[in-house]
Structure formats: C-alpha cells, structure tokens
Amino acid sequence: MVEKVWGRDCLPAPFSAPPGKRIGEIWFEPPPELPEVLVKYLFTSEKLSVQVHPSDANAIDGEAGKEECWFVLDATDDACLAIGFEREVSPAEIAAAARDGTIEQLLTWHPAKPGDFFYLPAGTVHAIGPGLSLVEVQQNSDTTFRLYDYGRPRELHLDRALTVSDGVPYDPRHRGRVASRGQVLIDGRHFRLDRVEGQPDLATCEAYVGALLALPLEGDIAARQGSARAKPGECLCASSLEDLDFSGAGLTLLTRAA
C-alpha cells in the first residue's frame, strides 16, 4: 500500500486502509518471472498531478520509459480522466499554462464509467480525477514528470516534461468499453492485457505462452499444482496460463510482457 495526498482513508472492499493513512495505490511488486510489468490498484479522492512519462526512446540519465493503461472498476457520476489536449499546442503554450494553472483547461477531460478502458502511450499528458477506482497496468517504471500539481508542495519537472510531452489530442482508438472491445484490451509494444470471464478461450490460451499475472476481480483462481490461490484484491503469478485453474473464476484480468 502506497500513501498519496490524493488517496483515500476508506477503501472499497476487499481492501482496508490502515488508520490515519490515505492510500492511493496498491502495488503488486513484479515477480522475478515477469519483471517488465507492474500492476496496481488506484483509488482517488482528489485530482492527481498533471503529468507525463517518457518513452524508452527518449528516456535519459537512468530513467525508464513508461506506457500504461487504465481499466475503470468504479466511478462517481462526475468522474473524469484528463488525457491529451483539446487541440494541438506548442511546448511554449504548455509551459505557460503549467505555470499559471490553466493547463487543466487545455486538457480534454473524458467522462469515466465502470468498464471503460484507456491506453496511454508514453508522451501523453494526463491526470486522473477524483472518485475513481482503477486497475493500472504499466511498464515497470516510476518515471513521472509533473507539469502542474494544484499548489501542492511537491516537486515539478517542467523542463524535462516539455521534452517528452506530445501536444496533441488523445487518439480515440486508444479508448473503449469492454462491451465493444472484446477480450483483448491492449496488445501493445510493452505488454498485453486481456479481460476474460470464466475459463479463457482458445485464442487467449494461445496468446499467453510464458509468465503472466492474473488479477481476479470476481471469483477466484488457483494454481493447478500446489495451494496458491488468488481472490479479488490479490494477484497470482504463473509460468503459463495452463498452470491456472479458472473453475471458480468470474471476471479476471490477464497481463504479460510483449
């Protein structure tokens, strides 16, 4: 559990925040079998900073590139995610708006509902609004450059952020709803993410050869050998999809490295 200024002191079941703690993230530390992918739960009560991440190609000085995606689990009626800009903007416009606080008005705020999915290529300027519970799947990197943080006393990284930010609108092809996207949510350059209900179908099984993470959202999954089992709020690592028993599963997210 990771404390954040924008986190919650009351988490949705099955989680529970320690007394006096505002928990914003719950990490599943990448296992040795799958070091490239990091899976988190995120819980927001306030806006996150306006931020951006570098790609592997433009990371410098020991930084690591970071692409990520969000699967919305729960949202208040007015919950939104800021992703990309309303129009093409120059680095100078981004810098001026970040300094005077008007960058929020330059961004596109997308309404977010349970079942929505958003993929964020590196370089996408973004912020998460309050009232959201998300699963985030990302490259295993914590490289974040903040452009604006609502006056909070945290470090900003404007110069570095401007060198990696894409001043363009968000590509609508990178978002969708489960009902319209099918099982494969993303099959990208760095990781794949699938949503399955019950037993994975043949195409999913063929796509998951090698180490993977399974995150049950309903029901539970178990290892075919041994006693390992995961229920909602937990994450199971397996050397292959064939090693997992989905007989008790409902809705599950599966992910692996590309």
Rank of each mutant, 00 (worst) to 15 (best):
Ile83Ser: 10
Asp187Ser: 13
Ile83Cys: 07
Arg181Trp: 12
Ala95Val: 05
Ile103Ser: 13
Asp194Met: 01
Ala161Ser: 02
Ile186Pro: 00
Val135Leu: 10
Pro153Asn: 14
Gln199Gly: 02
Arg152Trp: 12
Arg177Leu: 00
Pro121Asp: 11
Arg173Tyr: 04
Ile128Val: 15
Gln139Ser: 03
Ala75Asp: 06
Pro114Phe: 10
Ser133Leu: 01
Ser90Ile: 09
Ala179Arg: 13
Leu156Glu: 07
Ala97Ile: 03
Ala97Leu: 07
Pro130Met: 07
Pro91Trp: 05
Asp78Gly: 08
Gly84Tyr: 00
Asp159Ala: 15
Leu106Gly: 12
Val168Tyr: 00
Glu88Asn: 04
Asp100Pro: 06
Glu93Asp: 13
Gly151Gln: 10
His174Leu: 13
Val178Trp: 07
His190Lys: 03
Ile128Cys: 05
Asp116Phe: 10
Gly129Ala: 13
Phe117Cys: 03
Asn140Arg: 09
Ala98Gly: 01
Phe145Lys: 06
His126Asn: 12
Gly101Lys: 02
Arg189Leu: 15
Arg160Trp: 05
Arg189Ala: 15
Tyr119Arg: 09
Asp187Gly: 10
Gln183Glu: 15
Ala161Asp: 01
Asp74Trp: 03
Leu107Gly: 10
Asp74Arg: 13
Leu162Ser: 03
Val72Cys: 14
Pro121Gly: 08
Phe191Arg: 06
Ile83Gly: 00
Gln183Arg: 11
Asp77Gln: 12
Gln138Asp: 08
Ser133Arg: 07
Thr102Ile: 04
Ala179Phe: 05
Thr76Trp: 02
Tyr119Thr: 02
Val164Ala: 06
Gly176Ile: 01
Asp78Val: 02
Gln183Trp: 09
Leu147Glu: 06
Ala92Asp: 15
Gly151Asp: 12
Gly84Glu: 08
Arg173Glu: 14
Thr144Pro: 01
Arg87Pro: 05
Leu147Tyr: 03
Ile94Asn: 05
Glu104Gln: 14
Tyr170Trp: 07
Gly129Arg: 08
Phe145Ile: 04
Ala97Val: 03
Pro91Phe: 06
Thr143Pro: 03
Ala127Trp: 06
Pro114Tyr: 07
Arg160Asn: 10
Ala95Tyr: 01
Glu104Ile: 09
Val89Thr: 02
Asp149Asn: 13
Asp187Val: 00
Ala95Trp: 00
Gly101Leu: 07
Gly84Phe: 00
Gly115Lys: 04
Arg181Asn: 13
Thr124Cys: 08
Arg181Gln: 15
Arg152Ile: 10
Tyr119Phe: 15
His174Tyr: 13
Arg181Leu: 15
Arg160Leu: 11
Ile186Ala: 09
Glu155Leu: 08
Ala98Asp: 10
Tyr119Met: 11
Ala122Phe: 08
Thr143Ala: 11
Arg173His: 11
Gly182Lys: 09
Ile94Pro: 06
Ser133Gly: 07
His110Val: 14
Leu107Asp: 12
Thr163Leu: 14
Asp142His: 11
Val168Phe: 00
Pro169Leu: 06
Ser180Gln: 14
Asp171Pro: 01
Arg154Ser: 08
Pro114Trp: 05
Glu93Phe: 13
Thr143Glu: 08
Ala179Cys: 05
Ala179Glu: 15
